[in-house]
Nucleic acid binder design. Structure first.
Lengths: 208, 208
DNA sequence: TCCAATAACTGACCATGGTCAGGTTTTATT
DNA sequence: AATAAAACCTGACCATGGTCAGTTATTGGA
């Protein structure tokens, strides 16, 4: 009873055609993201079990895998929002700066900072982007942010009329960033050191 | 008994200061490599268990991990010999060819061919090189082959006096190769297609 | 309001990579 | 040859990521 009224009453809270089912799913997803974020940040991907994440999110251990097909996808789910923020921050900063290299570094800096918030999680994130399953949704979303980053880089490159193919060169610079951040040889570098290393690599690619 | 004679008798077979212990270890290593090679080639890394490899090598399952600290190291152990052969083949071919791009592609082609013998194992190999433990011996050896490859690339680049920093540009090209071979977006490309893709990327880096 | 049909959830269970306490073989010394 | 020390090997065992048959919740229709 009062079914009708209660439906009417809940409607305003959810303007879209959102039933109980959809609501529950969204809440669960939110709890999963919060739990995974907190635990990964606190202890690192490798020291957190999927069962722990499920427990902290208040769901069954199997349910977790309905929201992320595997542990790597879970990391992508959690980190891509921050990656997007970093890219957006870089893109904005690059607009307020003249000079090709300075524009590029404005983009590089926040991305490096994001990736090194926790070096282990950052490298795992790169690993999942490069080697994860491209058919999974969170992987696809991460790649779409990479595309945005490459667009921002290309936009900076287009300011110089001496660069023949900005889009391809942007892919190139993106590759250099990936490998530099992933490479074991750079494990000991701090963010400024990494930015310097990336600068050194791309200095050879752009006219001065 | 006859201990003394049997020692004398086995000495000629092993000219170096090689005791029983060292001999046993070398034989075991050889059996492990043969077993892992065969199984990985036949079924792919993911469909072969470490226990299967140990069984086929005729050793206990724990013994395997005295020769390779984990499954990734085992793959590196097995594949790096082939990688080295590919790089050497490319280096040699690049010497018999004029033109910067042609010289580079002479190196790229056998490396791509090696990496795509089995696409799953090839990508796993790249993954281990980028994200494996740099303190492990097989990982270090793989990286040393990368260094040889970059040297060969730099040697080709040095033929053109218009290239300012061949060594750095070689690192660059190496990064592009890594990412192009790893990227999910290129999964469907066959070796010639991959070489074309790499050519497209590096065309932007070298003077024509 | 009731009833299928469907979607979502659950946790016992499994396969596998990796560990380690205990056992065996080799070496060095006498 | 005997012994102790060192190196090496072994497989039972463990932790964990991931699966799936069975259960519960939601929805739409009558």
């Amino acid at each position: 009873m009062v079914m009708f009224y209660s439906r009417m009453a809940t409607m305003p809270e959810a303007p879209q055609p959102v039933g109980r089912r959809e609501q529950n799913k969204q809440q669960k997803l939110a709890r999963i993201m919060a739990a995974a974020s907190r635990l990964f940040d606190a202890h690192g991907l490798d020291d957190v079990t999927t069962h722990q994440v499920a427990a902290e999110a208040g769901i069954g251990s199997g349910t977790l895998f309905l929201y992320a097909r595997n542990k790597g996808e879970l990391l992508l789910l959690v980190q891509t929002a921050r990656f997007r923020t970093a890219v957006e921050e870089g893109r904005a900063a690059s607009e307020g700066v003249t000079g090709t290299m300075d524009g590029l570094l404005a983009i590089v800096r926040p991305v490096v900072a994001f990736n090194r918030e926790r070096i282990d999680n950052g490298r795992s994130y790169l690993r999942e982007m490069l080697f994860g399953d491209a058919n999974e949704p969170h992987h696809a979303e991460a790649l779409s942010v990479v595309a945005v980053m490459e667009d921002a880089i290309a936009t900076v490159l287009r300011r110089s009329e001496r660069i023949a193919d900005p889009a391809t060169l942007a892919e190139n610079i993106s590759s250099v960033m990936f490998v530099t951040l992933a490479a074991a040889r750079n494990l000991a570098l701090d963010p400024p050191g990494l930015v310097d290393e990336i600068r050194r690599q791309i200095a050879v690619l752009i006219p001065d």
